[in-house]
C-alpha cells in the first residue's frame, strides 16, 4: 500500500474521496426490483463457492452413492417391492434424501456467514433484507439440481430407468428439487438460531433422520408397525417420494399391482406440502435473520 501512496497520490486521492454533498450514487429502482437483483447477487456469490471448490458438490454425492450401493446390492434383495424392480423403487427415495441432506448446507452456510461477520456487513448495506436468505436458498436449488442430475446418472449405472413420459420424468426431478428448496428454509431457520456452523449441522440431523428413514424412501411402509405407519404414510417426505416415484414409474402400485397412469391428487398433495413448509418457515427464517447479531 505504501508504495502506491507514494507514486500516484493525486490520482488516488480522487478514488477515496467521499461524496460529502449531494446524493449517494445509488441507483433508485423499485423495492421489488432490488429484492430480485440482490437475491441474484447473493446467489451468484454463493454459487461461486461451488465453482472455486467443486469438491463440495462432488463430496456431497458420495454419501448418497454409498446409500445407493448399500440398498441396491446389500439390502435390496431382501426388500419386496412387488411388481417393480427395487432399484426403481429406491432411486426416487435417494433423490429426496440427497436434496434434504443437501439443504443442511443452507443452514451451515448462514451460520458461517454469521461467524465471519459477513451477515453484519450485509445488514449495514442498503440491500433488500430478504435477499440474504432468498439468494442463499436459490443458490442451493441450483446446487441441488446438479447433485440430483449426478444421482440420476449414478442410478442409470446401477439399472434405474424412468418409465413415464419425458414430461413426467422432468416433473419427478422438479418435484424433488423444489422440495429441497422448501426444506432449505427449515435448515435456514436452524442455521440462524445456531451459534456455530457445527451446531447448525448437529441440530439439522435429528430433524432429518426420522423424516428420511421413517418414510417410504427405502422400504414399503406396509412392513412397519402400525403406529409407525401412521407417521410414515402421512409425513411430507413420504408424500413427496410417493409422488415422485409415481412420476418415475409412470404409474402407481396398488394391491401389489402396477397401474399405468399417475394419480395427480398425490402430486398435488406433495406440492401443497412444499407450499405449506415454505409459507411457514420462510417468514420464521426471515425473522430469525433480522434478530441475528453475530
Amino acid at each position: 500500500m505504501s508504495e502506491t501512496t507514494a507514486t500516484n497520490s493525486a490520482e488516488t486521492a480522487a478514488s477515496l474521496a467521499p461524496i460529502v454533498d449531494g446524493s449517494p450514487p445509488t441507483a433508485h429502482k423499485s423495492r421489488l426490483y432490488w429484492a430480485f437483483d440482490d437475491a441474484k447477487t447473493v446467489a451468484w456469490r454463493n454459487l461461486l463457492k461451488y465453482v472455486r471448490v467443486p469438491q463440495l458438490i462432488v463430496f456431497s454425492t458420495i454419501q448418497p452413492i454409498m446409500f445407493v450401493l448399500l440398498f441396491r446390492y446389500v439390502f435390496g434383495g431382501a426388500i419386496n417391492t412387488g411388481p417393480i424392480p427395487y432399484v426403481d423403487y429406491l432411486m426416487p427415495g435417494i433423490f429426496v434424501q440427497t436434496v434434504l441432506f443437501g439443504a443442511t448446507s443452507t443452514g451451515i452456510g448462514l451460520a458461517e456467514d454469521a461467524n465471519t461477520g459477513l451477515l453484519e456487513r450485509f445488514r449495514s448495506l442498503p440491500m433488500a433484507r430478504s435477499a440474504v436468505l432468498t439468494g442463499r436458498t436459490l443458490a442451493d436449488v441450483v446446487r441441488n439440481f446438479l447433485v440430483v442430475i449426478l444421482m440420476v446418472v449414478v442410478g442409470y449405472l446401477v439399472g434405474f430407468r424412468f418409465h413415464g413420459t419425458i414430461a413426467e420424468s422432468t416433473l419427478a426431478i422438479l418435484l424433488v428439487v423444489l422440495f429441497g428448496y422448501a426444506f432449505s428454509w427449515v435448515a435456514a431457520l436452524i442455521g440462524l438460531r445456531a451459534s456455530t456452523p457445527e451446531a447448525a449441522q448437529a441440530a439439522t440431523f435429528p430433524v432429518l433422520f426420522p423424516l428420511v428413514f421413517a418414510s417410504s424412501a427405502f422400504v414399503p411402509t406396509a412392513t412397519m408397525p402400525t403406529w409407525l405407519q401412521a407417521f410414515a404414510n402421512n409425513q411430507p417426505v413420504s408424500i413427496v417420494i410417493n409422488a415422485s416415484r409415481q412420476l418415475v414409474l409412470g404409474g402407481y402400485i396398488e394391491d401389489n399391482r402396477l397401474y399405468v397412469g399417475v394419480n395427480w391428487f398425490d402430486v398435488g398433495l406433495a406440492v401443497l406440502w412444499m407450499i405449506g413448509i415454505t409459507a411457514v418457515f420462510a417468514p420464521l427464517a426471515v425473522r430469525a435473520y433480522r434478530k441475528k447479531v453475530s
Binding site: 465471519t116 453484519e120 442498503p126
Partner: peptide, 17 residues
C-alpha cells in the same frame, strides 16, 4: 445505509471470492 461504510474487527469478506 446508503451513506455509511462499516469495517469491522473481523474482516467481513467472503473467503472463496
Amino acid at each position: 445505509r446508503e451513506r455509511i461504510g462499516l469495517a469491522g474487527q473481523y474482516a467481513a469478506i467472503d473467503e472463496h471470492l
